[in-house]
Amino acid sequence: MADAVIDTHGLAKRYGKTDALIDLTLRVDAGEIFGFLGPNGAGKTTAVKLLLGLARPTGGGGTVLGAPLGDRTARQGIGYLPELFRYQPWLKAREVLELHAALRTVDGGARTPKQAIDAALADVGLADRADDVVGGFSKGMQQRLGLAVALLGVPRLVVLDEPTSALDPVGRADVRSIVRRARDAGSTILLNSHLLTEVERVCDRVAIVDHGRVLASGAITDLLGDSTVRIHVTDLPGEAVRALAGFGQAAMGDDGWLSIAGVDTDRIPELVATLVGAGGRVHAVDPGRASLEDLFLRLVRGGETPRTDA
């Protein structure tokens, strides 16, 4: 098993009479992109603040990079993009990175700090705005700058709190590439978001939280379960439907759509060939896989039993 970069047990945070986080048990392994999902007010940002030592837990505990929560030296290995990102508006973009490089004592490996800063700026598409004052940046550009700050010097753990909230679709696609490159460079990524499509496209594993509790966690493919393929087919003999049992649980609907639950997606071409061979005329095939959004809505609206891989 890979080393745990984040490992928490029963982490809780109460503000006055409000429970922001009730029982967060979470493990994020080295080298993965981990999605932390939840509706607004679910406790995602509170959890991030506890992990970074910006707030103190009222219950439970855990480790980040092998050190207790809030450990100052462990933060040497962490890059962080806050949800409410804002950087000194009177500094130039390069100066913001120089400040954070100095505060963290960036070890760029073979790179000098200046080279690490240039690389971070180029990575987020701000190389040509490096000497512009941050106060003149759009919100999207400030978020890109925040990403550069978080990724500076290839930290062991990168925590991104809603990293695409201010970005257009092009910017979001860029962020997906940036996150994957950061993982490939050796960082572990904790991606905190409520944008499910973004998370589904880029994350290896996710945890879905609501009201301060983990409702489900695991690999996305495991959480979504098997596919239900729907095929619009006509002229199919009744006995041919029964012969599909080897693919999954088949049922012919009145609308001419055949549903087969539990199909291995790799066998869909074989399934279609079987239908055609039996005399059926295939008009359309819908892989019909449940989306992360479907699962998320079912869990958050309370329609499904929580499950985790922990």
Binding site: L52, L54, A74, R75, Q76, R86, Y87, Q88, L103, R104
Partner: peptide, 14 residues
């Protein structure tokens, strides 16, 4: 209030 401090205090400083 602005959030400038959050990014700085997440660094290894007291």
């Amino acid at each position: 209030e602005s959030g400038v401090a959050h990014a700085m205090l997440a660094r290894p400083i007291r």
